[in-house]
Design a protein around this nucleic acid. Structure first.
Lengths: 124, 124
DNA sequence: GTTGACTATAACTGATATGTTATATAACAA
DNA sequence: TTGTTATATAACATATCAGTTATAGTCAAC
């Protein structure tokens, strides 16, 4: 596992991204985020539409918080949650690299095809 | 688990996203994608920099392929891999919703602050 | 101060993920 | 044919995840 840390760009950043992507990999957690997109909600409000117990939701929220995807404030006995941009920004920064590579690959293919057309080559 | 399928938007799409986000949650797989951003590589070429056996890499590649993040062609006994946009597009579509919500929340906070300044309220 | 609502945590279970070694398959090379 | 290279798959061990129930802590309301 030593060399791996050299290959992958620094285990600290990697841990952040691991947490964010892992948090997003669960449909319940994505549904929670979609819900929070409409505004702040408490734990019980978030739990209500799911066929799941409150402790399960609490843990999902913890995962989302650790991933920097939500933040919570204290309001009496309630803990209203709202979206945070830290997590999504980390994800976006990483995805930007992939998107750029895909565009470049596409352009490369594009120019290859253009060359073939110019030279009257058979595209089939 | 029945109601959950109603809350989360359709289990088919969810499965796609699950696969893509789960694939991205592993640092080894992200490193493989980063490598492929520079162009096509075979399984052994991809395996080389990692302190991991070839079967492990083969399975990571299968996960990436199922998530629509890479595609493979056959070239003799080799299986060169390259990036695919299907996976990242699915991810991007979903993240767009979150990004938009974050911008709206930010604007909302912005206008609240602006109001407070107008009314000479104490921002601290 | 007692009660009830909101939330978090611990302990446990079953499912899934990630790695290993051993082995199979297929193409190439001699 | 025989050996070698490239890759995939099976069988297994271990770790982690996602849910459960039971319980504890905190605040509010009466």
């Amino acid at each position: 596992m030593l060399y791996n840390n050299i290959v992958m760009n620094s285990s600290i950043e990697a841990t952040r991204l691991d947490a964010a992507f892992l948090a997003l990999a669960d449909p319940t957690r994505r549904a929670i985020l979609a819900r929070l997109a409409h505004g702040e909600e408490t734990v019980m409000q978030l739990a209500e539409p799911f066929a799941m117990t409150q402790p399960a939701i609490s843990r999902h929220l913890k995962v989302l918080e650790n991933a920097g995807l939500i933040v919570r404030r204290i309001e009496g006995t309630k803990r209203p949650c709202r979206l945070s941009n830290a997590g999504i920004e980390a994800v976006d920064r990483w995805l930007a690299m992939l998107r750029e590579a895909l565009v470049q690959n596409y352009d490369r293919l594009d120019s290859v095809l253009a060359d073939m057309v110019e030279n009257g080559e058979d595209l089939k």
